[in-house]
Simulated scan of single mutants.
Amino acid sequence: MTYVKVCKLAEVPEDGALGVEVDDTPVAIARSGDEVFAVNDICSHAEVSLSEGEIYNGTIECWLHGSCFDLRTGKPTNPPATQPVATYKVKVEDGDVYVSLGSED
């Protein structure tokens, strides 16, 4: 599995998200408590950037219509979204965040 360095952990707001690109794929790097997650940055409902939304209770909320997605599974937790967003493997080493675009199962 190939991991790509995407940012410094310090660049990702606590209980917030940062939008990055990995091989032309938009990715939202999200911090929820002490955990770091990576999900596709495009809402499956309205095609807007999820990294501009709020992070709470292990979810990321789309700022446009309020759909929330589980940061672990990518599944929507409330409407209007009905389709999940992709999740990606993420690791933090020496203060750097790395992402692999291989989908998590």
Rank of each mutant, 00 (worst) to 15 (best):
F69T: 14
D41H: 15
V39C: 04
I29P: 01
D70M: 08
A17P: 00
G16I: 03
A10C: 03
A17C: 12
L18F: 01
I60K: 05
D34A: 07
A17N: 04
E61L: 10
L64N: 00
V22R: 06
V27Q: 09
C68E: 05
E47C: 07
C43Y: 04
R72M: 08
F37Q: 14
L50A: 07
G19K: 07
I60G: 11
G53V: 04
K5N: 11
G16W: 09
G66E: 04
A10M: 14
E11F: 06
G19Q: 11
V27M: 07
A46Q: 03
E47R: 13
H45A: 02
C68A: 06
L50N: 03
S49L: 06
F69C: 01
T73A: 01
K8Y: 14
V36M: 13
G33S: 07
D34E: 03
P26K: 08
A38L: 07
D15E: 11
V6A: 07
V12K: 03
C62D: 01
L71D: 05
E21Y: 10
A46L: 10
K8T: 12
T73W: 12
E14L: 02
S44P: 10
R72S: 04
C7L: 13
P26D: 01
N57Y: 09
D34W: 05
Y56L: 15
G58R: 14
V6L: 08
E14C: 02
V48I: 14
F69I: 09
E61H: 09
K5I: 14
W63M: 03
S32V: 11
